[in-house]
């Protein structure tokens, strides 16, 4: 889509886009370009010399069992977080959309977690579930459950899923509520008169109308789970115990910053870029949003 009425000249617009372009080139494109460069080079043990190795870094990654495990782990993590966060978001939105007293108050009380930092979400859950002092840990202990996310791999993985989903529910809630509010009242009322009730009515008449929202949210939630949960996981477990909660973004950080494997980390960055480019393209192609 283009405008018909325009202003003349090219100097002014060039100046107007310059700041944004400068930042984009310096801090986005240049690092991405460097990542490409580093991903095809290997540095010696002393970090002094590097040599061109072609796709060896990538080959090494895909053969490495820890990378394969991180891929699978990230996949499971994304699916679990997406299902939980969207399921609860839809459930809450469908009830909040009913004509009930206090609907506005509920709305506020359900959207505020949007504002919580992922890292802070982890901090407050640590306080609840800290192995020695946590309120819930002690409660679980009395019920005979030994909960210690610092030592039990599966509990740690489960916990990062729960926190990541907890944090994301309100986002999905906001979008589903907006989606539901655009469903004409008459559709809902007609369904009621026909004697279709409750879940059946929801599933057959309303859910299909939410399909665009659902599709959009699936992509957004996967991107969130895959990329925006670094802080959440890193603050809670730093990827541990062992590699139990090491998703791809955590691994990039651990390998690059902590283990100083520049080539391997750069190759991982490139793979992540490919993944996110794929997801963004799908989002723009199929949600009716046109960029050009």
């Amino acid at each position: 889509m283009e405008r018909r009425t325009l202003f003349a000249g090219w100097m002014l617009p060039a100046v107007l886009v310059a700041p944004q372009l400068a930042i984009t080139v310096l801090f986005f494109l240049l690092p991405a370009w460097r990542a490409f460069g580093e991903s095809v080079r290997a540095t010696d043990a002393f970090g002094l010399n590097s040599s061109f190795v072609g796709l060896a870094n990538f080959a090494e990654l895909f053969q490495s069992s820890t990378y394969q495990a991180a891929l699978v782990r990230t996949f499971v993590f994304c699916i679990a977080v997406t299902c939980l966060a969207m399921g609860f978001g839809l459930l809450l939105a469908s009830f909040a959309n009913r004509a009930i007293r206090g609907a506005r108050v509920y709305r506020i009380l359900l959207i505020w977690p949007y504002a919580i930092a992922p890292a802070i979400a982890s901090v407050i859950f640590v306080f609840l579930l800290q192995p020695q002092i946590g309120l819930l840990t002690n409660l679980f202990g009395r019920l005979g459950l030994d909960f210690n996310y610092a030592t039990h791999a599966d509990q740690a993985f489960l916990l990062v899923i729960v926190i990541a989903a907890w944090k994301q529910v309100s986002y999905n809630f906001i979008f589903y509520l907006a989606g539901l509010q655009s469903v004409p009242r008459s559709v809902i009322e007609a369904a009621t008169l026909d004697g279709a009730r409750g879940f059946y009515r929801f599933r057959t008449m309303i859910f299909p109308l939410l399909a665009p929202t659902t599709f959009f949210l699936i992509i957004v939630n996967i991107v969130y789970a895959a990329f925006d949960t670094f802080a959440l996981i890193f603050a809670l477990t730093a990827g541990g115990p062992g590699t139990a909660t090491e998703t791809l973004v955590v691994k990039v950080y651990r390998d690059g910053i902590l283990n100083l494997d520049i080539g391997g980390s750069a190759a991982q960055s490139i793979i992540l870029m490919v993944i996110i480019i794929g997801l963004t393209t799908i989002q723009f192609r199929y949600t009716g949003k046109r960029a050009g």
Partner: peptide, 21 residues
Amino acid sequence: WLIFITLMLPVEVRIIPTYAV
């Protein structure tokens, strides 16, 4: 398009090179 591309390059995917820059 250059601006649009930044959507696909969050810090999380380019940690080391961004640090270097």
